[in-house]
Design a protein around this nucleic acid. Structure first.
Lengths: 201, 201, 201, 201
DNA sequence: TATGAATGAGCATTCATTCAT
DNA sequence: GATGAATGAATGCTCATTCAT
């Protein structure tokens, strides 16, 4: 009961922070803003989180948990490698576009401008890229993939998706181009370039 | 003479701001910091620039001028489309990696978090993507390009390069992967997937 | 049993507070710091002590008990007055140097900056100076002491020792001077100036 | 004119700080308190002083200047060594009692609890003790002083005076004893014990 | 009884911007 | 024209103490 309520408040702080993060970005997010929105005292924030960094870190961790969970849930080993990669790509882009606040703190923060994210948590953060790498490695072993270096390819795919997400976030995609069309085209090209497919299709 | 000196100070302010931008990022950049480095009064800054935003805008504009100039200088219409695209890609990535301070304010700022960048200046900003689009359109007209929509493809190429630059800036590329190797691989894939090349090799 | 455990916790709070006092000083000592170190709840502190001041007062009282006990233990009425005074001086300085945390709250706190130390406890506090005065009075009655006013002299001796302790605490003694040498010289001069000793030596 | 006014404000801040220091002590002195008393904005304080420490440092420096000036002004090389030492002692004690706020920050601050006082300023701080040492050295050379080590003796005299000042500040001198009587007695003993004087007087 | 969640004023400091001189 | 003094709200954070549970 007590701990339930405690969890509730912690949750509310995290949720409010997340919401504010979308609107203002991490650098214009202030503890006072959070208290105003949550309707609590400054001290309360500091009771639940050691400091602002710890609050952000908690959100980063949560973000990685959600992303990796979504990635793992969406992967189906019974499908073709093409389909698996396509699905993983869609899941990743979906996450990035639907959760700009998570995405921004997870993947857009220069390390030197933020208190060091605890090293041990970085492992979980890496998992998100490894999901891609794992499938590519498997495909590579089976001889299905065009390229030789699965880990490098995972980074390239990631970069491509990351770039799309980033440009959408900053609203730089020309309005003549529909986001979903662009995303689908990108993922199709990723798949096509990695696996021997009838290109004439 | 007078106006020459005037330009000098304006120039110095811009240069100093740019340098400070790399070290501190836009949100931790302060007018006081700039005056300290330039060795001028606060008023001076406000004489040359309406406010902090205007100063950043001037830098953004300058950034786009430099980027477009570099792109246009590097394009050689006599080369094959493959080579022209490859060159443009390299130029773009080079610019992004060598000028993180420009790149960040040009392509990473959420529009809602900044005073509106003047509409008329946005045209020049667009030019940077049009350079890619122009070459692709030409290739498309000549029937050389695999894909049908040059403008969309320009955006995809841009996204890919933008993603790489972004991940390098935030130091997220695994240290087992060399940046240049990754960039070269990316550009090769871009070229390969856009133009009919012996894929069976 | 229960009361035994109770005493244990009270004890532990006092000991921890004392230890923290050396490191942080009274103004940077916080209740939270104490609970963290003791491993108890905030409420616990307030169960045993009315407030922070009361906790400090308890420590002050304890300090005076220890100092007076040490003074009385070290006094040996069988010795000469010179030796008795010398011994008392050494005991006092020893206490001050070995227990900076006690000494500071006992003798360095401006009364107007602290909740009033309970009047009845002040009596015990006075005892520490009376120990000196008692011996001097006795010496005076016996006609052994040079000066006429034992109580005043007790204050002067106290001042001298207090000054040494204070300067050592703030690390102001020149490093060419060894503390012990200085202390011994001081006490020798105190004794020499109070009792007829061959000054011509 | 401008710089005159500037000096005025700086002065006022220093004076107000000094006054507040007496009442509240350094640890309970806050920038806000100062602004309230000066009737200015927070920013003003920070315009004239880099930070709180710098403000205190300025006061410490000022204190040492005043003390040393007073010491040097009061020393008259034409007097006997006894009189010179007596005068210096009186000057020192006077300064300490009349300027508790200066005295406290000059001689009662534990070095570890305060931002490092600039090393080069410490030299001036040392001068205050050297004034005593200089006279004692001269007396020693002339064979007038009883003791062998002028520098050590200077420290002992200093300790004695420092102890008196400290106990007066914390109001620990028994009210049956008049401060001035005590101070005079102390200084007389200092002089008597250092120089061959008819002790029977 | 004992806990620990909650308060909210307080802290030192920074900052973009204004405007009297 | 140019300066730099001044503003004052805002920042992250701490803390003694209270009190519902």
């Amino acid at each position: 009961m007590v701990s339930e309520k405690k969890q509730d408040i912690r949750r509310k702080i995290l949720d409010v922070t997340r919401a504010l993060l979308v609107q203002h970005g991490i650098t214009h997010l202030s503890i006072r803003m959070i208290t105003r929105e949550v309707g609590c005292s400054v001290g309360k924030i500091y009771f639940y989180f050691e400091n602002k960094d710890a609050l952000i870190h908690a959100l980063i961790e949560e973000g990685f948990e959600k992303l990796v969970a979504a990635q793992e849930a969406s992967d189906n080993p019974d499908l073709t490698f093409q389909d698996r990669i396509a699905t993983l790509c869609h899941t990743y882009v979906d996450f990035g576009l639907r959760n700009p606040e998570y995405y921004e703190i997870m993947f857009m923060l220069k390390p030197e401008r933020m208190a060091r994210y605890p090293a041990e948590k970085y492992r979980k953060a890496r998992r998100s890229i490894e999901v891609f790498a794992d499938v590519l490695r498997e495909a590579h072993e089976k001889g299905t993939m065009v390229f030789e270096e699965p880990f490098l390819q995972a980074h390239l795919i990631w970069s491509f998706l990351h770039g799309i997400i980033g440009l959408v976030h900053v609203k730089r995609i020309d309005r003549k181009i529909e986001h979903q069309v662009m995303i689908d085209a990108a993922i199709r090209q990723i798949v096509d370039s990695h696996f021997e497919i009838a290109r004439t299709v």
